[in-house]
């Protein structure tokens, strides 16, 4: 573990968080989500946190790779065990995006930090963090939910291929500002999840719905997905994306990749 993250256990304890311990930190792993998933199957307690300085097989949606330079970013996965029916689990993916958004906004400023449905975090339209939530359902019982998060924190030299579509906390700070504090950002994400996961699992998105609306990067924008195209009109209380097609019909999208059309001049 790099020195700056050594404060994490103390910060988790100090803030009395139910998430973040026990902490397993690896210099390199295939994927923190896989570590967390394996541990969850072997009975790891709720709140277990798996952190790595680099991933050799970091994953995004449907097996896409997630790249990160060693020690520069935050790559971690949490084991959550919500006591709720399976139908309550998908909204947790939105809570994860919101928790990351709030932690990033605390450092770079509230302005242009948004969530692209369901849970990519964007600053001025560029991706700064990604979330991959996986769950295991056996019969009608939710065994575990794995919340995997990657945040670009210290990276200043992004690979050319993604420099136009990605950013980092360091790149969003004014020139001359001290480098961002990885431990503080991590613990802020944990605190956000700690506050919201439980009540959303128990009662749905009601209490976070207004915040999701304010953070919505897609509202009013032209979007396209596997199910068609139209104008995004927010997120409903089940967490589905509302899209109005050109005939004026309102659709509720619950899955699939959504792409944003460029802003019209």
């Amino acid at each position: 573990m790099y020195k700056d993250l050594e404060r994490v256990p103390a910060l988790v304890a100090e803030r009395g968080l139910a998430l973040g311990a026990p902490l397993t930190c690896r210099d390199e792993t295939a994927s923190t989500n896989d570590d967390a998933k394996r541990a969850a199957k072997e009975g790891a307690p709720a709140g277990s946190l798996f952190l790595a300085e680099s991933q050799t097989a970091g994953r995004g949606r449907m097996g896409r790779t997630w790249l990160s330079a060693r020690g520069e970013n935050l790559l971690f996965s949490l084991v959550v065990r919500p006591n709720c029916p399976p139908s309550r689990v998908p909204p947790l993916a939105l809570v994860a995006g919101l928790a990351v958004r709030d932690a990033v906004a605390k450092v770079v400023g509230e302005g242009e930090v948004k969530v692209k449905w369901p849970n990519d975090v964007l600053v001025r339209g560029k991706k700064i963090a990604g979330v991959l939530v996986e769950s295991t359902v056996v019969g009608s019982r939710v065994d575990a939910v794995i919340v995997g998060i990657g945040v670009n924190v210290l990276s200043r030299d992004l690979p050319e291929a993604i420099a136009s579509i990605a950013t980092s906390v360091a790149l969003e700070l004014p020139a001359g500002a001290p480098p961002p504090d990885r431990a503080a950002i991590l613990v802020d994400v944990l605190a956000g999840l700690d506050r919201d996961l439980g009540h959303v699992a128990a009662r749905g998105l009601g209490l976070v719905h207004a915040r999701l609306g304010r953070a919505d990067a897609l509202r009013g924008r032209r979007v396209a997905g596997e199910l068609g195209a139209g104008t995004a009109e927010g997120v409903d209380t089940d967490g589905r994306l509302l899209v109005r097609d050109d005939a004026g019909v309102l659709h509720r999208w619950s899955s699939g990749e959504v792409t944003l059309a460029p802003r019209r001049a």
Binding site: R61, P86, V89, P90, P91, L92, A93, L94, W117, P118, N119, V131, L132, V133, E134, S135, T136, V137, V138, D143, G239, R240, S254, S255, G256
Partner: peptide, 11 residues
């Protein structure tokens, strides 16, 4: 999958 949450259904 729902809302990018990958839900594994186990036997």
């Amino acid at each position: 999958e729902a809302m990018k949450l990958m839900n594994e259904i186990e036997a």
